[in-house]
């Protein structure tokens, strides 16, 4: 394998992406995490550029960095007040183990080393269905790939319907998010709180009844 300039650029970009991602998942400070997330997204955009899909690189910056990350920052701001919170939960170690294991498995499938070939002969064929993945050379593409892509999005026999559905989805998500996160007026808040309190009380009663006389509760549930 030859090391070219592209290889080095790739390596740098990878380090950025992965490093900042690591930071995101390990830091205690959520604001820093959000900023590192932005950095990671930038790195990914660079990788897209390297893959000669500039459109998506720009889309990435616009959507992820310009919108989603801002959302995250808003959310972080709105949910302040968490002090002295542990970073990881109870199963963090197990989660790390599983993640590493998954990584190993995927790597083995994607890039079998001599060892893994000995241990898992033919794994790649089985998973990838015989696609020769060891691409080292690529064909050139024309710039009209964007045109093709755009045309396919409005082509009734191609991806028009999913496109429209995606638009609908965005609408719904927008409306839903607005409603869910809406600021409530005090009366509303109070009413909501009462409702929640009533439900909580009922829940507690249920708990107690379950402890003393489970049958009646379960029977009542059947109705």
């Amino acid at each position: 394998m030859t090391i070219t300039l592209q290889t080095i650029i790739f390596a740098l970009l990878s380090v950025v992406v992965l490093g900042s991602a690591l930071f995101v998942v390990t830091t205690r400070n959520l604001f820093h995490a959000a900023l590192m997330l932005i950095l990671s997204f930038f790195g990914v955009a660079g990788l897209y550029v390297l893959l000669e899909s500039g459109f998506f690189a720009v889309a990435q910056v616009l959507v992820y960095i310009g919108a989603i990350s801002i959302l995250f920052i808003f959310a972080v701001m709105l949910t302040r007040g968490m002090v002295a919170m542990p970073r990881v939960n109870a199963q963090a170690q197990l989660a790390a183990l599983v993640s590493v294991l998954l990584f190993v498995v995927i790597v083995v499938i994607v890039n079998p080393t001599a060892l893994s070939i000995k241990v898992l002969p033919g794994a790649s064929e089985r998973v990838l269905g015989g696609i020769p993945w060891q691409f080292t050379t690529v064909t050139t593409i024309t710039d009209s790939y964007i045109k093709q892509f755009g045309a396919s999005l409005v082509d009734g026999s191609a991806y028009l319907l999913p496109f429209l559905l995606a638009a609908v989805l965005l609408d719904i998500a927008l409306a839903g998010a607005v409603q869910v996160a809406r600021e409530r007026r005090p009366a509303e808040v109070l009413a909501e709180r009462e409702l929640m309190a009533a439900e909580a009380a009922e829940e507690q009663q249920r708990e107690q009844a379950l402890d003393t006389a489970p049958e009646t509760v379960l029977a009542a549930d059947h109705h």
Binding site: L18, A21, L22, V24, V25, M85, P86, R87, V88, N89, Q91, A92, Q93, L94, A95, A96, V98, S99, V100, L102, F103, I106
Partner: peptide, 11 residues
């Protein structure tokens, strides 16, 4: 996998 760890292991 890093993202996965973030989902599973963060509080």
């Amino acid at each position: 996998c890093i993202g996965l760890y973030g989902v599973l292991g963060r509080k």
